[in-house]
């Protein structure tokens, strides 16, 4: 794929980083403001999809992106499960919040293991949506052969 017109490329170059930072903000502040892992992960995936649509990719890039997004998705899912199992082995219950009173409520460092769960879900959702997009986009190389 050659990519789109220069107008789209310039706009994508300016806007892409801001979209990525906004997604990270939504994930990290999920326990304070509206949002969380699912919403922030979808925004991060939208940033990657924007740059891939605007600049275009080659077959080898599609293949490496498919492998790396699969690895990130499995990592996110396993991190979320690890937080749950940590609650089981340390606190006694599956998914127990280990240190809920640590930090002051309303600040970034608070709410115990909820921010870590948000980060794990954010990685997982971003990689999942991106890997679905990459697989759908790389079918054109199958039809070309």
């Amino acid at each position: 794929m050659k990519g789109m017109t220069p107008i789209v490329k310039v706009v994508a170059r300016i806007v892409g980083g801001f979209i990525f930072i906004y997604g990270c903000y939504i994930v990290l502040y999920g326990h304070l403001s509206p949002g969380g892992g699912f919403a922030g992960g979808a925004i991060i995936a939208a940033c990657f999809i924007l740059s891939r649509l605007a600049f275009g990719t080659t077959a080898s890039q599609e293949k490496s992106a498919s492998i790396s997004s699969s690895i990130f998705e499995s990592t996110g899912g396993l991190l979320f499960l690890l937080i749950a199992l940590l609650g089981l082995f340390v606190g006694g219950y599956f998914f127990i919040n280990l240190f809920p009173s640590f930090g002051t409520p309303g600040r970034l460092v608070s709410a115990g293991s909820i921010p870590f769960s948000n980060i794990a879900i954010g990685i997982k959702v971003a990689a999942a949506i991106l890997s679905i997009f990459v697989v759908l986009a790389s079918t054109k190389y199958i039809f070309k052969e």
Binding site: G30, H31, L32, S33, P34, G36, G37, F80, L81, A84, F94, F95, N97, P100, S101, F102, G103, P105, G106, S110, A111, G112, I114, S117, N118, I121
Partner: peptide, 21 residues
């Protein structure tokens, strides 16, 4: 009980975290 100001997150990731899994 959870320390999260956003009550939706406290339900989704603490009280009902198994559903999120």
């Amino acid at each position: 009980e959870t320390g999260a100001v956003n009550r939706v997150t406290s339900v989704v990731l603490d009280y009902r975290a198994l559903d999120t899994l």
